[in-house]
Design a protein around this nucleic acid. Structure first.
Ligand code: NAD
Ligand code: NAD
Lengths: 210, 210
DNA sequence: CGTGTTCTGTGAAAAGTTTCACAAAATGGC
DNA sequence: GCCATTTTGTGAAACTTTTCACAGAACACG
């Protein structure tokens, strides 16, 4: 889209989200400047990588005086696109869906979960952490009415692909998928999978080595 | 540790977990061979990458006849270390903790969640999806008695670092952390973070571009 | 039995990411 | 005002991962 976007390495972008969080906490303590090595400590990486990443988002520090916290916050939020909030829905208000609703309601400023959906009558019309769960039949209507562009999938594995197709047909262009399947979707849809199994098996593999 | 391990690229290892899942489903349909392009379709990547990955785990296909499913399953499980199960605990039986307990109880064969812990009296001594929640005071004892090596952290952000220190002191060497903080721990402990915020912001960033 | 087709295996190139190492800038102490 | 010290910014090297492209193996079919 804009020029800056294209140039930011994917890995840097991922870390940027972490940096935002770190700076928000850091600023809350009244601190106004920070050195690359201090920030690296907080982020669990190296000063060198910090400086590179900061360059990518247009943050300039000054020698000896480090980086200005507020300027960094502004730059990072601008790079991440904080001027625009994205309307989001969550489908599948089971164990995981409920947990995520409770989390998002107060944690992710840039992404707004406007509605949730389920098939089970006993879930429908309940409000979980501020988000109403609707009948899945109303999904397409609400997506259109509220200009929803992102979807979070927390339905059982077997239902995920069919649901994803429906989301895409309704205009969704970004999906966070918690079901353990590879979704097969058109190229214009951006998908990320949250694979808890993968992470825990990775830990099982690498832990106890060093 | 052993020779094979060192040589497997990290990204390949991550995908291996996915391949195991795919093959389990594929084999359940009675299929016994698969081509790299078929498997790539199921995994959402390229035939070329599939073949590379398969090489890393010692799977040899044969020209024209593709790969033997059973052999691949055996090899992948052996690479991932399925001969040995790891004892695991989960700390913080809140919304997310409960969701994860219900998931792990039947999904991840190689990792066994043997106990959960919480501070709140009303959580303690309840059994969630087959796993008992104990008083956090008993944690160190149970870790030792059951030879627990991995820990899953689902406590509030503020509690995470102190808890992680306690886990490490008790002998835990691998941690899956859901709290949105960078844990500062000794080098011998392998940590992975599950960052939902990061994923959703990444989607917000990249979606609607292509 | 030979020919065309469809696969795998893999060197080598390309692309992406991290780390190194050091010049240049800024600061504080003297 | 000058020197020692600390910190940034960045080319270039090192490393990692993905993709390309094609030789060679295996099979089907005539
Ligand atoms: N629980 C976890 O920690 C965890 C972790 C990783 C992945 N997952 C995956 O997340 C998904 C949900 O897990 P869960 O534990 O919350 O399961 P769950 O059974 O508690 O919840 C699933 C919910 O989806 C609803 N649902 C089913 N079909 C639907 C449809 N077509 N449209 C709308 N809603 C529908 C159900 O009514 C239910 O409320 C599963 O795919 C699971 O594999 C869960
Ligand atoms: N809910 C989500 O989808 C989600 C997503 C990403 C990250 N997280 C993170 O996961 C963590 C848990 O989230 P949640 O929504 O389940 O919160 P929650 O408040 O529902 O659960 C936290 C649980 O931890 C327990 N606890 C607190 N201090 C403890 C201690 N010292 N020892 C043992 N137990 C303790 C509490 O009693 C409670 O049961 C938080 O750090 C949150 O930021 C949650």
């Amino acid at each position: 889209m804009n020029k800056t976007r294209k140039e930011i390495p994917v890995n840097t972008l991922e870390r940027m989200v972490k940096y935002r969080r770190i700076l928000d906490n850091y600023a809350a303590d009244g601190k106004t400047i920070i050195y690359s090595h201090e920030m690296a400590k907080l982020a669990g990486n190296t000063p060198s990588q910090m400086r590179r990443d900061l360059m990518s988002c247009g943050c300039a520090g000054s020698t000896r005086a480090g980086y200005n916290v507020q300027e960094m916050q502004t730059n990072i939020k601008s790079v991440l696109g904080y001027s625009e909030t994205k309307q989001t829905i969550l489908v599948g208000v089971g164990n995981l869906g409920k947990a995520i609703l409770s989390y998002f309601s107060f944690r992710v400023p840039r992404v707004q979960v406007v509605a949730a959906f389920d098939v089970m009558p006993h879930r429908i019309d309940r409000v979980i952490s501020g988000t109403r769960c609707h009948d899945i039949k109303e999904m397409e209507t609400i997506i259109k009415e509220q200009s929803v562009t992102l979807g979070i999938i927390t339905v059982p594995r077997e239902e995920a692909q069919a649901l994803a197709d429906r989301l895409v047909a309704a205009g969704i262009v970004g999906i966070l998928n918690f079901a353990p399947v590879t979704l097969d979707l058109p190229d214009h849809v951006y998908v990320e999978n949250m694979d808890i199994t993968m992470k825990i098996e990775k830990i099982a593999f690498y832990s106890g080595e060093k």
